[in-house]
Structures are given as structure tokens and as C-alpha cells.
Design a protein around this nucleic acid. Structure first.
Lengths: 235, 235
DNA sequence: TGTACATCAGTGAACGCGCGTTCACTGATGTAC
DNA sequence: TGTACATCAGTGAACGCGCGTTCACTGATGTAC
């Protein structure tokens, strides 16, 4: 790698870092090439050496955000010491899911919040990174299911078939994922998502004091309802 | 009411309607006094007769959105024919909650989506309207509880006291709302919220086909887990 | 019922500002012989 | 090792555009007597 190539790489990272800082202050919709260039001590046209347009930059930021979140989840799972304690692994990963959202509120709302006006994400670029996240959760659920530890409630076996008739779901099922596991994964994902969104956008501030405990309670409840109980309940 | 006053009233409504249309096309962050005036065939300064600033307009739109949503919920509940069928009432109200969100995606994300950059909502203006929504759900839950039909699971009685130590929660409790009912309300709200947010921002498009059934399943599951079952399960 | 005055919705010009994007250019870095 | 050339990051000026807000004003509507 050249000196020139190394410089290019680090400038590219700097652009995205500063874009992130500015979104943190002004919101995701406020991404501005001029403002980024100004803070970097460059002129705006120079940024066009790195991104062919503002939309290109946004797409890169979104893909980065998905990947950063997925890496956080994967790291949390990989560093969990008891691979057979599926409940513990899920709880650990889902707590990291929430923590990552709270520590990276901008990246999180870039992904899951209101879309940026005038910007349309090219699905072929963002979708693969998006799937990585859900895959982590589904992976642990499925491992627990195969091990016979996860025993989904009756309802997860009795779902209307029209529910999972979309391409990504079909792909997962044809890759061998059992229906109740996918169904349970969707339910779990939507539940934690709701709590995090409400917390992140301050709709629970005046109602609930200890949001981490509240969140943890919801996760443990869902796991327990499907047969998954951590070996040591003190954790 | 004067001719002048009537005109003023209708112009004020028109401003907010057009602001809504433009947000529908461009996103909530794209509210622009110039664009609104242009579409109305007026000059921009004329809008300052109605709102002292852009932020004032946004605040008005937010308060309107909260109130519109609350009215939709209240109407749905009031028009439900069997007041003693608490499960039916809750299901009906919560289906309207989702439907209102899908039919008014802009108003919904104005309230619950990412905040508008540079705008800070004055809590004293928006909070009362916000509380109205949650009150509808809590009202039915409490009625069902008082009637002895809603029997919350054990866990809703055993929550850490730090969970509800915030002003709004304290207010509700001191107004006589039982702890398990409030706790259950919060759990229910967060669950439906998560599904709606994911659906609204298109994160479930490639996974779940029939989202209404999925949503309904989650609601009925929560109700049934706490003793509330509609008299006629065909509904 | 008619007149004098007050109210106030809306105008038009101007303010200073920031935006994304294009273009021809300079000058340092890297490559081939 | 030295020279000629190619690459390409970054500049500076310019493009046309939209933004929120202020100000002195016009002219229709409403009110008091």
C-alpha cells in the first residue's frame, strides 16, 4: 500500500468520522458536504474525490453503521465464555444490541429511524449488511433449538403460512432455518426494537427510571416463555 | 365569529394541511416556510401572521398529531359495541393505533421518529397531548382490571420499585392506577410500537407478508397471557 | 345610515446565509525506463 | 540513480438555488359614534 493509498484511506475514514460527529449534533438529515469540508480544513469539491455525491456518502455511512452493529453483536457472542448457555448468550447479545444503540444513537437512527428526506437507499448495497445483524440473533436461537434447549411455545408452530412468504424469509427457511425459530426471532427483534426506539427518542423518560432493567425483564420473559432459562439466575 | 376570524381560522388550517402534504413528500425535516407559502400562493412573510417562527409551526403540527391520534383511539373505543368485552376493546383500539400510524406515516414519525434537526420540542406544550394517547390504553386496561377480568401475570406485580420512579408514572399511580396495570401498559405499548416502527420504515418488507396478522397475533398473545380473551375468537 | 378611525392580513424588497455540484487549474506523489 | 511522464488530491472561482426573518408599506375588513 502506497503512501498515497494510505493517505487516501485515512482521509476517507476522517470524512465519515466527521460526518458522524456532525450528525450527532444536528441530526441525520443535516449531513452537509460543505460543513464536513469546512471542519476538515478542505474545500468542498475535494470531497468529490472520495464520494461522487452526497447520496453516495450517506449510503456508505449506512452500510458502515449496519456493519458496526453486526460486529458488536458478533464480538459479544464470540467472547461469551459458555457456548452452551444459550439463554446467557442471547441475553448478552441483546444487551449489547441496546447498548450499541444508546452509545451510537446517530448510527442507529440512520439505520432504523425516519428516512433522510430526498435520499433513497439502494437496497442492493444496504441489504446484505442489514441481514448480518438479524443473522446473529437467528444463529443463536437456531443453535439453541437444534440443541433441544429452546422449546418454542405452541403459537410459533401455528402461524399462517402467508406470514413468511417474502424473499428474505423464504431464503432463510430454504437454508434450513425452522419456521418457529424464524417466527420467534421476528417477535423478539420487534419487542426489543420497540423498547429501544421509545427509550432513544425520550418517550419513556418521564415514565420509567431504570430502563436497562425494564429491557432485561422483557428479554428474559420471552426467553423463559420458550424454555430458555440461564443456568445462574443471578447474572 | 367574524368573517375575518373565520378566514384566519381556515388559513391557519390550510397552512398546517399543506405543511403535512409537503412532509409526506419530503420528510418531516423538510418543513419549509417558503415552500408552504409558495404552494398557497402567498408570500413567506405572511405566514408570520400565523406562526411567530418555523419552530412554532412545528410545535403546532406535533400537538395536532398527538391529538389526532388520541381522538382516533378514543373514537374507536367509544364506538365499540360491547363495553364489557375488554379484550375486544383493546384489540380494536390497538388495531386503530397501527392503522392510524400507517395512514398518517408523517404525523406518526413527527411524533415518534427521529427528532427534527435544530428543533427542540417545548415539553410543556407537547406533553399533555402525548399523555392523552397512553391514557386511552391505560383506561381500558384499568377498567378490565377493576372488573376482575384482567389478571396480570405474576411478573407484573414483582417489579423493582425503581422502575416507575418518574414524575408521570408517579402521577398515574397516585391517581389510583395499580402498579401491575401501568407496568403491563408500558410493556404492551413498547411491543406494538416496535412492530409499527419496523413496518413503517420498511424493515420487515422482505420478511413478513401479512403484517396485520403478525401484529394482531402479538396483541392477542399479550392479552391472553394476562387472562384477557375475547368472547368470540373468530373476530 | 354614514363617516372616521383602528385593525390586521398580506405584499415586495432586502438581509445574510448555506447548500450541492461543475470546472479548469496547480503541484506533490508515484512509475517507467 | 536520474529523468520524463502520468496520476490524482486538493484549490478557488463560479453556477443557481433555497432558506428564515425583518421591515416599511397597502388596502380591505371591522368598530365606534
Amino acid at each position: 500500500m502506497n503512501r498515497r493509498e494510505r493517505l487516501r484511506e485515512s482521509t476517507l475514514e476522517e470524512i465519515k468520522t466527521i460526518a458522524g460527529q456532525q450528525m450527532a449534533e444536528q441530526g441525520t438529515a443535516a449531513i452537509s458536504l460543505n460543513a464536513i469540508a469546512r471542519q476538515m480544513g478542505m474545500t468542498t469539491p475535494a470531497l468529490y474525490r472520495y464520494f461522487s455525491s452526497r447520496d453516495e456518502l450517506i449510503t456508505a455511512l449506512i452500510v458502515d453503521a449496519y456493519n458496526a452493529q453486526a460486529s458488536a453483536l458478533e464480538t459479544a457472542d464470540a467472547s461469551f465464555s459458555l457456548p452452551d448457555d444459550y439463554a446467557g448468550r442471547l441475553l448478552s447479545v441483546l444487551l449489547v444490541y441496546r447498548r450499541w444503540a444508546l452509545e451510537n444513537p446517530v448510527a442507529f437512527s440512520l439505520i432504523y429511524g425516519s428516512p433522510i428526506p430526498g435520499y433513497h437507499a439502494p437496497a442492493e448495497r444496504t441489504a446484505p449488511a442489514a441481514r448480518r445483524n438479524f443473522a446473529v440473533i437467528l444463529g443463536i436461537l437456531n443453535a439453541a433449538y437444534q440443541a433441544g434447549v429452546l422449546r418454542p411455545t405452541e403459537r410459533y408452530f401455528q402461524l399462517p403460512p402467508a406470514l413468511l412468504d417474502r424473499p428474505d424469509a423464504q431464503q432463510l427457511l430454504s437454508d434450513g432455518l425452522p419456521v418457529p425459530v424464524l417466527y420467534l426471532g421476528l417477535v423478539g427483534w420487534s419487542r426489543i426494537h420497540g423498547l429501544i426506539m421509545l427509550e432513544l427518542f425520550h418517550h419513556l423518560d418521564t415514565l420509567v427510571g431504570d430502563l436497562k432493567t425494564f429491557y432485561k425483564g422483557e428479554v428474559l420473559e420471552l426467553l423463559a416463555a420458550n424454555g430458555l432459562v440461564p443456568p445462574d439466575r443471578n447474572s
